[in-house]
Nucleic acid binder design. Structure first.
Length: 266
DNA sequence: AACCCTAGCAACCGCAAGGCT
DNA sequence: AAGCCTTGCGGTTGCTAGGGT
């Protein structure tokens, strides 16, 4: 029988999204959530495949996304996590609130890879290029097994990220640092989100009053949580932004105003 | 001014995983 | 247990803007 294509190719638009399409997608998701990506385009009046809609939403339209280049700390975290996890971009992204796997992957390929090469470090193995072979027998200091890597070459200061050797320890230690990191990131997120983007002020501006109801019900998760924790990875252990996480309600409302959801009826 | 080259990023594609029946 | 469906992931492509000649 074979796999059913993700969408009937006929009549499905591809390529860059228009502001109008973005708006439709945002409106629909704010109103109805995204219960079924496959059915979403039809329901939202979009000539796109569900996959494309999901990608657009998760990589570009989600209101909890950070925008702009990765900070030095974030970059360092990516390097450390990559040393540990390899090309598991979604897992890496799950440790960086507001960042998407696609964004991190792109950043890795365009910036970090080059930086590491310039510093004489193999971006895949995280070992010094000229020592790759001589270190094969010296696995105590630098292991070729990603699970065992306890130290990356000191590319930059690593004070903010320390990943211990074992998997379980890694989880707990990185959780602690992630929490610190994500608290900062969270503040950053609230400060920075969408401040500078005219497109978004347009996209989030009007025709969204019907979304009012959905903000208070379960469309965005239990008890009004804005986002499903699984959006960027199943094992997220950093604090996910949600109204509950913001201490007082006013702060939440301020936050909403920051990216234009004041028009949704708050 | 026109052309070429390159870097960066958004989006697509194919496959895999997991859930459901 | 098997097959189907949906979603998620990682690799890759292609467009565009900016810089250089």
């Amino acid at each position: 029988m074979g796999r059913q294509p993700c969408c009937d190719k006929l009549g499905v638009k591809k390529g860059p999204w228009t502001a109008e399409e973005d708006k439709k997608l945002i409106n629909f998701i704010l109103t109805n959530g995204h219960c079924c990506w496959r059915a979403l385009p039809k329901l939202a009046g979009l000539r796109r495949c569900g996959k494309s809609c999901r990608l657009r939403w998760t990589n570009y339209l989600r209101p909890d996304l950070k925008r702009g280049l990765l900070s030095h700390d974030e970059e360092q975290l990516v390097i450390d996590l990559h040393a540990h996890l390899g090309n598991k971009w979604s897992k890496i992204a799950s440790r960086l609130p507001g960042r998407t796997d696609n964004e991190i992957k792109n950043h890795w390929n365009t910036h970090i890879k080059k930086k590491l090469l310039k510093m004489g470090i193999d971006p895949m193995t995280h070992q010094p290029l000229n020592q790759e072979h001589s270190n094969i027998d010296n696995s105590k200091t630098i292991s070729s097994n990603p699970e065992d890597i306890s130290m990356e070459p000191k590319t930059t200061n690593t004070k903010d990220v320390e990943i211990s050797a074992t998997t379980t320890e890694e989880e707990s230690s990185s959780t602690v640092t992630d929490q610190n990191n994500s608290m900062d990131s969270e503040n950053h997120l609230i400060d920075n989100i969408y401040n500078d983007d005219e497109l978004f002020s347009y996209l989030w501006s009007d025709e969204t009053t019907k979304a009012e109801a959905s903000w208070s019900d379960s469309n965005f998760g239990v008890g009004g949580t804005l986002y499903d924790n699984n959006i960027s990875g199943a094992d997220t252990d950093f604090p996910i932004w949600s109204p509950e996480r913001i201490n007082d309600e006013k702060m939440f409302l301020d936050y909403c105003q920051d990216f234009g959801v004041h028009d949704f009826g708050f």
